[in-house]
Simulated scan of single mutants.
Amino acid sequence: MKSIPTLATIMTPFPYSIDVNDTLREAMDMMEKQGFHHLPVTEQGKLVGVLSNRDLKFIESPFSNATLDDDLYVKDIYTTRSYVVDIHTPLENVLRVMAEKHLGSALVTKNEKLAGILTHNDVFKKMADMVIKMKSKPDGNDAA
């Protein structure tokens, strides 16, 4: 392998985000339209957390007193304890933390501003590309 992928090469750059005071319906529509499972949450332009499909599914579960028909806002259900990393953090460190803590995303910042998001799907896509490249370049050690 010629180069080791970096966080910047795997993350989704310049992700959409939503404000804490936007409605849950707006967030759901954006996530559905864009095909997202994670949406960074901001307050007055500052990154404060993440909203995930898991958060939305909880509202629909029997464990919730609310429903999606209620007038709910992003601030009512988003996760404030999100995993935030600097864009220069080594990829292997980010992946290890995500795996150990069973996290679906890492919010990536540059100069303390949202620069991207790394999700498990981003990692799966890159890994699939790497495997395909490895298979297409036999090294002469095939056991066939």
Score class of each variant (00 low, 15 high):
40 P>C: 12
62 P>V: 09
42 T>D: 12
80 T>V: 10
43 E>H: 13
56 L>W: 15
32 E>M: 14
4 I>C: 08
63 F>N: 09
109 T>A: 05
134 M>Y: 09
106 A>E: 04
4 I>A: 11
111 N>Q: 08
16 Y>E: 14
29 D>I: 13
26 E>G: 01
25 R>C: 08
143 A>C: 06
36 F>V: 14
14 F>D: 13
5 P>F: 07
20 V>W: 06
103 L>F: 09
66 A>T: 07
62 P>S: 09
126 K>Q: 10
45 G>R: 03
95 L>C: 09
140 G>I: 13
36 F>M: 14
73 Y>K: 08
37 H>V: 13
115 A>L: 07
46 K>W: 06
139 D>F: 07
128 A>H: 05
59 I>M: 08
133 K>P: 00
11 M>W: 12
17 S>R: 15
43 E>F: 11
39 L>N: 01
42 T>K: 03
87 I>V: 11
125 K>E: 15
87 I>H: 02
96 R>D: 10
33 K>P: 08
105 S>H: 00
116 G>T: 06
120 H>E: 10
45 G>Y: 01
66 A>S: 11
24 L>Y: 00
84 V>I: 08
13 P>C: 10
94 V>M: 05
118 L>W: 03
74 V>L: 01
2 K>N: 14
39 L>S: 08
139 D>T: 08
93 N>Y: 06
123 V>W: 02
89 T>H: 00
125 K>I: 13
128 A>P: 05
72 L>Q: 04
132 I>P: 01
76 D>T: 04
62 P>K: 07
41 V>D: 04
29 D>K: 14
68 L>Y: 12
118 L>H: 00
10 I>D: 02
5 P>T: 09
63 F>T: 09
51 L>A: 05
15 P>E: 11
39 L>Q: 09
90 P>Y: 04
2 K>F: 11
54 R>M: 04
89 T>F: 01
136 S>A: 07
4 I>F: 14
68 L>N: 13
91 L>Q: 01
6 T>S: 12
68 L>G: 08
93 N>H: 08
45 G>Q: 02
2 K>L: 12
125 K>H: 12
113 K>E: 14
38 H>C: 02
29 D>S: 14
62 P>N: 06
13 P>I: 13
72 L>A: 04
104 G>Y: 03
8 A>L: 12
90 P>R: 03
10 I>S: 00
134 M>N: 11
15 P>G: 06
118 L>M: 08
121 N>I: 06
112 E>N: 11
118 L>I: 03
74 V>A: 00
47 L>N: 10
50 V>C: 01
135 K>D: 12
118 L>D: 04
30 M>Q: 15
59 I>S: 05
88 H>C: 02
94 V>G: 01
96 R>T: 14
88 H>T: 10
52 S>W: 02
